[in-house]
Design a binder for these strands. Structure first.
Lengths: 158, 158
DNA sequence: AAAATTGTTGACTCGCGAGTCATGAAAGCT
DNA sequence: AGCTTTCATGACTCGCGAGTCAACAATTTT
């Protein structure tokens, strides 16, 4: 109930892998293998990230995905918003449609504050930090079954 | 995605109404009418609250529900736990089953802190405060279509 | 131009929370 | 004892996020 959707989780982990590949094009298939997500589902999530301006896609031979901007200029808030829609953190905690600033619900004060805190945290958290954390933990391309050297070699501009 | 389930919302609003009836027995039907929730669904939610020791139920003629304790000794955390299970605020924000203190996920630090904050807030928030807020806002039994005087008269011990 | 590669998209299934319906079980009244 | 009232509960439907499958469109290589 409290937490991100699995779609957002896939997105964050996949982008963390992407960051480790620098500017090279990486296949959705390799990202899926790396984070253990189903390829067709991840494809749709990546597609939403394209729409949100988080990643770029290139079709056809030697295509794939790469970050639209450097990882330290991509926030987790932005990533989640691209996947789940811009309103993922708005709304009443009790789900009341009538709850507004004028006619607030009994948990409004508490939730308004928490919501703002969470939003701020997610905006301050950059993909670079997430990726660095994952890399230090020995995850990402380093430790998955994907052959990193081959992926990077293949992703280079011809 | 972020927020309580509607079941918890129904519970909080219904309990707020219950508080305004003091120690009298109130019918599930009246609570449902008062908060605008479907009766059969609310019944199941009230049943979970019985199991969680939040309310008491009495069947048969002149039966109904009443709070198991005074409203200022019932926390919102307790109510939500009764409805959604005790683990409603545990677990990884990315939904990773492998995430633990030893092998944390990239958002672990952020989420652990937020989770704790939310838990503390919900534990400090008592039903009495919620009910007082609702009453001041002109909601609860005061403003619903239910005849408060009749309900209270009926709920008295014979 | 043809073939191979790779992202795109719509239709489908599955599980779960939300909500409905009908029936059963306890408690009080007469 | 029988009737009425009221909570308890299992089976069902509905909508939605998650995940699958298959056909399609774009791009590069040969």
């Amino acid at each position: 109930m409290f937490g991100l959707t699995t779609a957002s989780a896939h997105a964050i982990l996949a982008l963390s892998c992407l960051e480790q590949a620098d500017d090279r094009w990486v296949l959705a298939r390799d990202l899926a293998a790396c984070i253990g997500a189903p390829l067709p589902y991840l494809s749709k999530i990546l597609n939403r990230l394209v729409g949100g301006g988080v990643v770029e896609a290139k079709r056809g031979y030697r295509g794939g995905f790469r970050l639209a901007r450097p990882a330290d200029r991509l926030t987790v808030a932005e990533i989640v918003a691209a996947v789940e829609g811009p309103d993922f953190l708005t709304g009443c905690i009790l789900g009341l449609t009538t709850c507004s600033e004028e006619r607030v619900c009994p948990l409004h004060g508490f939730w308004k504050q928490e919501r703002q805190r969470i939003a701020e945290q997610l905006e301050q958290l950059h993909l670079g930090a997430v990726s660095a954390f994952e890399q230090q933990a020995g995850r990402g391309f380093n430790r998955c079954s994907v052959d990193l050297a081959a992926v990077l070699e293949k992703g280079k501009a011809p």
